[in-house]
Design a binder for these strands. Sequence first.
DNA 1: ATAGGATATGCTCAATCGGAGCATAATGTG
DNA 2: CACATTATGCTCCGATTGAGCATATCCTAT
Lengths: 337, 337
Amino acid sequence: MIRTATNFGQIDAPDHGAGEQTVLIGLSAAILSVQEERPRVLVVRHNDEADALPFGNFDPLSHRTLESGLRNWVQEQTSVQLGYVEQLYTFGDRGRHLARPGEGPRVVSVGYLALTRTPLERAGVLWRDWYMFFPWEDWREGAPAMIASQVLPSLRHFADAAPNPDSRAIRNDRIRLCFGGGTSGWDEEKVLERYELLYEAGLVVEAQRDRGAVPPGAPIGPLGLSMSFDHRRILATAMGRLRGKIKYRPVVFELMAGEFTLLELQRTVEALSGVRLHKQNFRRLVEAQGLVERTGRMSHKTGGRPAEQFRFRREVLRERPAPGVRYGFGRAIRPQT
Amino acid sequence: MIRTATNFGQIDAPDHGAGEQTVLIGLSAAILSVQEERPRVLVVRHNDEADALPFGNFDPLSHRTLESGLRNWVQEQTSVQLGYVEQLYTFGDRGRHLARPGEGPRVVSVGYLALTRTPLERAGVLWRDWYMFFPWEDWREGAPAMIASQVLPSLRHFADAAPNPDSRAIRNDRIRLCFGGGTSGWDEEKVLERYELLYEAGLVVEAQRDRGAVPPGAPIGPLGLSMSFDHRRILATAMGRLRGKIKYRPVVFELMAGEFTLLELQRTVEALSGVRLHKQNFRRLVEAQGLVERTGRMSHKTGGRPAEQFRFRREVLRERPAPGVRYGFGRAIRPQT
DNA sequence: ATAGGATATGCTCAATCGGAGCATAATGTG
DNA sequence: CACATTATGCTCCGATTGAGCATATCCTAT
């Protein structure tokens, strides 16, 4: 007997392998960029529909790898040539990949993060400030007021509505862990956890859409702009991953021009992480790590003393195992000096 | 016109969405455990075939999420109830999910990491020391001799065979980054990078199998025991992820009994990470972080002075944002005192 | 019972790192 | 030419980390 890949491994299991119903593999990319201290995500617009990330289905005939399939789709839809690309997560939950309630086949959705400097504009394609989708994630000017005024009250209501005291305690713990308060501060990397909490609490438009409670075409909830399918979830994953990765891989430089001042670099990191950093320490850290080198040229666009321009030192990749902009170590946030 | 999930998002792209050829979604789990200072992985055995991870195909009809599908399969094949489960990565490369050369349909493979303490044994199922598959990853007794005697010579040969000087320099950089030497030391988290390098260099049996160069049933290469499909790659991903995660999430405790001595905990971390740690500092770190609490009971199995037994402090999950066994910070390895 | 072996556990010391802020330098502007 | 503004250098301190010494408490052999 020749076993095929389909049944090998099924030792004494009943045969319900697959194939009874087609599964589509959706590829979506959160393509990120930073312009003028604002982090942007590339979305495709479609009439009155909510924004969506560029996406398409994986085609086993023409795509050699998932990533090459993704690159094809993005290229076709947006004309963007992707540089840095990283796989994020594969979502397969029933009923969370819907454009509108109860519609469409089962889709397993593979999310990607991509970084680019190209600020291209093209019909049907748009760069959006990602904090439009996640207004509670931007702490650069201090804690967003809407957290205290909207998010927390709604979440407390959600906790109070728990079926029993145990579940209620768990919900309260999650709320505290996600949004801080008490001993724990703000962890800027927990973007996905926060979004999922809001989804489960039903505070986000997609949650109602997936339950069939809301007609399509009403993408603007009180808690930020929503997206089609599970795309806001993918974007949340991308943001969290990027915020983490910055610290131990030199990925920020994928978003910078060839030359930049240290303050420009800092502003970019701040835009991504959503927190303010201490200028002198940032500079000390970045220089000490050998991440950059001086070009000798000066920038006079500063308004004060001209700033020296730097470029990324590619050699660090070969020198140190985990080079990244370690902007302090995940403690509380501090105001800028 | 009602757009479906299949064509929405295809703005002006030719219609090659999907469905022309079936894609199977394979779910595989690297189920890890530690017994007697040895890290183990659960494999399913099948006659003369190479070892495989427990796996099965995702069934969109009966599985609500990918993870629930995985749990079903594992339950059926191994009777293990999984505790901690984490998705690793989704692989879709053409030709890397083969049991033997050139066989079977296209499979997109979703790999999972799972942790368990249950040391179950059952027919057709076996716990293996994971260093059998990755002999170069165990640095607890110092650098494995086979790196200098086998791995590096073969890799240098691979670098020398590069088509041009540029490619050769890149290969040499990769070798140095993966296996250390020069300024860079050993980074225990780069398990996947090392495996992929060996795969690309053709030094690992799977590489030859995927090229159709080797008949099935020859799973033992000079560089460790091989596995079916892309399962060794998934295991590599699991090891690397776990080695990283230990440091900022209290996942080790998923592998410990309810009570343990600090040395037992240390030995477990060492088994997973493959490096030796400084005993007094390990103790200081773990206690200072509030990860454990004393039970008051003593263990007399030590051979010397009895050791106090500890248990995991669950409250730490609610207190600190990223609790983990931060066993020093990814610098060089140090011998034990 | 006692010495010696073995492990547990407490503590010190120096080096480094990270957070905060003072001080000075070099521009443009009214 | 004073001043606003940004850049950049440097200090100081407390916390963390790496390394190892010292002591405590058990078991075993004699």
